[in-house]
Design a protein around this nucleic acid. Structure first.
Length: 270
DNA sequence: CGCTGACCCTGACGGC
DNA sequence: TGCCGTCAGGGTCAGC
């Protein structure tokens, strides 16, 4: 489900509802996620206060005085703000209950997500070796060009690698490559510095616009209040295999790269 | 070291 | 109507 824009939409949505209010109860109904939910999580959060909600790549970090809760939404996860009168649905795995009756509720049918407790200021292997944030200035075409040298993997696989750059998932990788006119299966090491400059600009542009639209809802992504994101209306290629290219009207090609569905225009993308 | 494919899990959908 | 195969926005890991 969530790529960077959906995670950022979630962060902005939940933030005002969870900051500065004592947590009175933490309920873990299902701890078997991608990794087991940290057993100390309820104890560490209860009586505690969240001071801010940050994001690193697709990880959300809920900051407190004694440590951080790190949440990943996996493929089907979502966080919603609800209240004690709302009966939990199937797959509502974790409730974080605040003193005012509001609840931060983690929902994840496929259980590929994770909820971990990082004590104190400690880092974690999952976030310590990530590439730059795509919307920050240290991510640019030169960065992509430098790391791509002598790499034979497909450029689409390359930009989806979180050690290269975080937050670019399957939807936005397809979209950015279309905007840049680059074939997804082109070897990463056989692309010019100039074209990587264009690609990094297009990655920033497509992620930025998706955040403005509240993310992309295809199946299960919902915002903190349960509403969908609207960026799917602006998708040029993702989910449009066999349909016509918006630029040249040729039929879009659909294939698989690294086991992920890949759509492009063989005329506009070289 | 880089790359590929299997795998974790549930649910929706299309074909028969 | 039901059964079966396929696919889905994530990432890790073993093996070559």
């Amino acid at each position: 489900m969530p790529e960077l824009p959906e995670v950022e939409t979630t962060r902005l949505g939940v933030r005002p509802h969870v900051i500065g209010k004592p947590i009175v109860r933490v309920l873990v109904r299902e701890s078997r996620l991608r990794w087991p939910v940290s057993p100390e999580l309820p104890q560490m959060l209860t009586g505690n206060i969240i001071s801010d909600v940050a994001r690193r790549g697709k990880y959300l970090l809920f900051l407190t005085e004694c440590g951080r809760m790190m949440v990943h939404l996996g493929m089907s996860g979502s966080l919603r703000i609800t209240d004690i009168n709302k009966v939990p649905r199937k797959h509502d795995h974790i409730d974080i209950c605040f003193v005012d009756g509001n609840i931060l509720r983690f929902h994840d049918p496929r259980r590929f997500g994770s909820v971990l407790w990082l004590p104190g200021e400690s880092g974690h292997e999952l976030i310590d070796n990530l590439g730059p944030e795509p919307l920050e200035d240290d991510f640019d075409g030169d960065h992509l060009y430098r790391l791509s040298q002598s790499r034979r993997t497909a450029v689409k696989t390359f930009i989806m690698n979180s050690r290269i750059v975080v937050g670019v998932g399957n939807i936005y990788a397809n979209e950015a490559l279309f905007l840049s006119g680059i074939r997804p299966d082109r070897a990463a090491g056989r692309i010019s510095r100039e074209r990587y400059r264009r690609l990094s600009d297009d990655i920033k542009a497509v992620l930025g616009k998706a955040i403005e639209s509240g993310g992309t809802t295809l199946r299960d992504f919902v915002r903190e209040d349960g509403s969908p994101g609207y960026f799917s209306q602006q998708l040029n290629v993702y989910g449009r295999g066999g349909e016509t290219c918006v630029r040249c009207s040729q039929k879009l090609t659909e294939s698989r790269l690294g086991n992920r569905s890949t759509v492009y225009c063989s005329r506009c993308q070289r």
